[in-house]
Design a protein around this nucleic acid. Structure first.
Lengths: 260, 260
DNA sequence: CAGTGGTCTAGACCACACC
DNA sequence: GTGTGGTCTAGACCACTGG
């Protein structure tokens, strides 16, 4: 019903508009099932591909997803806070001192993670940031972090091999004293960091690893940490599914350089 | 040629894979034109919709875009730096003191912007952050920023009406002394800020306003500024096309709270 | 005018999860 | 089995831009 041909707006757009309205105003709530393709074909009197085109527009907007063979569902729009500052200040990641684990436990959720440690020839992106020569290697701790069994984000921390060679960073367990502590003991106290955030669509690999449904962008968050001698000692590569997070920074001071 | 049926990977996936490889390894460079649909139909011996399905996968990954009626082209993957800290420290946006304009001019590019000022009942999102009551209004300065004639991002700054009512913030021009200066003169010196960054697909409105091609996510960057009495005095809503920017924060100190 | 991608139709067969 | 969405075919007509 109610699709008109020969209007400026295409049929699939009109169908998508109507469904989008219903999603946004709550007629169909988060988690609800949309009508099946067959129902929409009947309702609007159009071909199946037209209905599918309309639905794929909404999928591309990140509003709905297909769960085969159950139907299309409205996606969850709630987001959790992601705070790079406390992640770094509390340091990245270890048992009692892992900010991810402790913060989430306090929030009454069940955090967990998998850790996998290896020595690798790191990607160019990491090599540049760690100022490694062509033949220098790095240790990477690859983590997948979960909350209540649900994958939240991936976190790969790279360290120059020569710095961490004999430290607990090499062991595939939570770092009980904390990675920053370990680095400091090795003579490299991290005193500053550079955060780079890029927004993009995931690669097919990432989509698979993070179990992302189509229409889900990611934030790639790269942290490069420097020690007291301005040497890069850590490069962390986080990939966050865009639909699950709000990235938060708090800033103060704002010294007004030119008297503004 | 070379698509095989009855393999686990679908035909459209195989075609997409082959084209993706060519894009990523540079066989077809940024800005280059891909083969037309007709050529791909012939090359692979499949139906048109199959070719279109393959291409729309790559469009969804943000790798290529259709420029009708010219063909499909490899998208530009260069990004410019976006630094919320200097944007705020230098203050947001005015003629000689506008960090956007001055920084970009120094980089040898031609910045420009449109400004539109109005008094509005702000969106709920802004109202919460400015702690406005239901009937309180705000002044919004809506900007679209360009570089060399190309749209870079949108920037909407909201101010509580009662604070800026009689100030130059109300005039639709560049703020020569700077918005922070004006706020300070009105007795509200901004001393801290909260940044929130969310990653999502654009709404159809945004896609149109920012001229985003399909497969382009956005970063929504919300800055809330507080004065010496911890009253929110500004709420800035930036929408950045994901494919054009790297968001950069610099942090130092990292005081290691619990001795980590 | 020719060639491009955009829209739409009307079919077909498939894999998968649930009953 | 039944119903779901996923893949694929083989056509058609359209709007737009360039030569």
């Amino acid at each position: 019903m109610a699709v008109s041909r020969s209007v400026s707006r295409s049929v699939k757009q009109q169908i998508a508009d109507e469904l989008r309205d219903q999603v946004l105003n709550g007629t169909v709530a988060e988690g609800d099932k949309l009508p099946s393709e067959a129902e929409l074909i009947e309702r609007y009197g159009v071909a199946r591909n037209t209905v599918r085109d309309a639905l794929s527009l909404l999928v591309g907007e990140g509003l709905i997803e297909a769960r085969r063979p159950h139907g299309y569902f409205v996606r969850d729009r709630r987001r959790m806070q992601y705070r790079p500052q406390s992640d770094l200040r509390g340091l990245p990641i270890t048992a009692p001192h892992d900010t991810f684990l402790t913060e989430q436990e306090q929030a009454g959720r069940e955090p967990s993670q998998t850790i996998e440690v290896s020595i690798v020839d790191p990607p160019a992106l990491v090599k540049e940031r760690l100022q490694l020569k062509a033949d220098e290697l790095a240790v990477v701790r690859r983590r997948l972090r979960y909350l209540d069994g649900e994958l939240i984000y991936s976190n790969d921390s790279y360290y120059p091999l020569d710095i961490v060679q004999t430290t607990p960073i090499m062991s595939p367990h939570d770092l009980t004293p904390g990675a920053n502590h370990t680095l400091a003991e090795a003579g490299h106290t991290q005193v500053r960091a550079l955060d780079e955030i890029t927004v993009r669509m995931p690669t097919p690999d990432e989509a698979k690893r993070l179990d992302l449904s189509p229409g889900t962008p990611v934030a790639e968050h790269i942290i490069t940490g420097y020690d007291q001698d301005d040497r890069p000692v850590r490069c962390v590569l986080n990939v966050l599914p865009g639909n699950r997070h709000v990235i938060i920074y708090e800033r103060d001071g704002l010294p007004s350089p030119e008297g503004e």
